[in-house]
């Protein structure tokens, strides 16, 4: 029989997903693994994980990994890439990591045009710590630290990282994707691939924002979560290529 689909070899063999049911992190891990295999760079690649559920990626992949302090993944990647320019480095960072505590590192690495790849997972909530407000939390969305819902007067507005980084000159690729349906999954994989090809070609800073759900943090079922993405998240965070130069 012809083998038409198999698990990416970049995953630890015996590993079973420990992510919450319906979580898209496992899909993201798979997509990245497939891209690394297709580009034949697995043996050159190191993952720099942020803190939070993104940090869990290290437990699934079977290639090199280093855990960065919260928010500092792009700084750690900078040190690695500057000293090993022929190797491949990518970060996986959540919204708290990339857009709150690590905002300075994120913008500065992008502004220097570091030749690295950033995968930014935006689910508008702090998942691992139990549903606190993120800088990307939608207005009105409830969080354990904004129990009546985020309000602009007190908490400000959701931050749009693709658009923030698009103000800079150096980044070469900024895209916002999702994994909510097969079409978007394909686009996400294409974007991730492009972000790695840019690094291989030495073109500079690439960031792929993946808008996902956090069913546990949102208090929704998997299907409700998909609806919430379409109805609430995408209007705030429109999908598409923001920059490709």
């Amino acid at each position: 029989m012809e083998l038409v689909y198999t698990r990416t070899k970049t995953l630890q063999e015996d590993k079973v997903s420990g992510f919450c049911p319906g979580c898209m992190h496992s899909t993201i891990i798979k997509l990245i693994g497939e891209v690394l295999e297709e580009l034949d760079i697995v043996e050159k690649t190191t993952l720099i994980t942020g803190i939070g559920c993104c940090g869990l990626h290290m437990d699934y992949v079977d290639y090199d990994e280093i855990t960065a302090p919260h928010g500092r993944a792009t700084a750690v990647a900078t040190g690695l890439k500057r000293t090993n320019p022929d190797r491949i480095y990518y970060t996986i960072q959540g919204d708290g990591d990339f857009a709150a505590i690590g905002l300075g590192e994120s913008i500065s690495a992008a502004n220097r045009g570091e030749n690295i790849t950033v995968i930014f997972v935006n689910n508008a909530i702090y998942g691992m710590t139990g549903g606190q407000m993120a800088p990307t939390t939608l207005l009105g969305m409830k969080a354990t630290t904004a129990q009546n819902g985020r309000n602009a007067k007190e908490h400000g507005y959701p931050i749009h990282m693709c658009e923030v980084l698009n103000q800079l000159t150096a980044p070469v690729f900024l895209a916002r994707c999702s994994c909510n349906n097969p079409q978007n999954l394909r686009k996400t994989k294409d974007a991730i691939k492009k972000a790695f090809i840019n690094q291989i070609e030495g073109r500079g800073f690439s960031m792929v924002e993946i808008v996902t759900s956090c069913l546990t943090g949102w208090g929704l079922s998997p299907l409700e979560g998909l609806d919430y993405l379409e109805e609430k998240m995408f209007p705030e965070y429109p999908l598409g290529i923001v920059r490709d130069i």
Partner: peptide, 20 residues
């Protein structure tokens, strides 16, 4: 690299050193 902060700088060094 002139880091954007002391925090970023030390983490760049953490990275570079982890790279050998």
């Amino acid at each position: 690299v002139q880091g954007e902060s002391e925090v970023a700088s030390v983490n760049m060094v953490y990275g570079a050193a982890a790279g050998g």
